[in-house]
Amino acid sequence: MPEPIDIQLKKGVLGLCVLAVLARRENYAYEIASLLSGAIGMGEGTIYPLMRRMQTDGLVETYLVESSSGPSRKYYRLTPAGHQALKAQSDEWRGFARAVDALLEPIAEPAEPQPVNEA
């Protein structure tokens, strides 16, 4: 079982990942799920509740594409609100990631605080 920090991070960033995947290319759910489960190890089934929620929130919309084989396929694309959300959330993510990276770097000069004798 993964560590809780892992789960919390993924949970928070899953919506952003879907927005990013759809910004590259309008896509259908199976492909989105495959991309994300490969990239961040998300359960494939969770894509459907998530897509419905994003649709409710007006971030994505669906359209049907006729398929030569079998029934027509449901594609997702970003709405203008979805593009805005992607912009805002990716800025936030980059700022956050930069801040964490900076903290993870070992400090160049040894500026160790002297231990203070506590009473």
């Binding site: 489960s37 359960g43 494939e44 089934g45 969770t46 459907y48 509740p49 419905r52 929620r53 409710t56």
Partner: peptide, 22 residues
Amino acid sequence: VAQALGDPERLARELRTEAGMK
């Protein structure tokens, strides 16, 4: 595929919640 999708009962709960909120 079923393994990768996850527990159908839990998915149903999430989908039902989503529908209720909508």
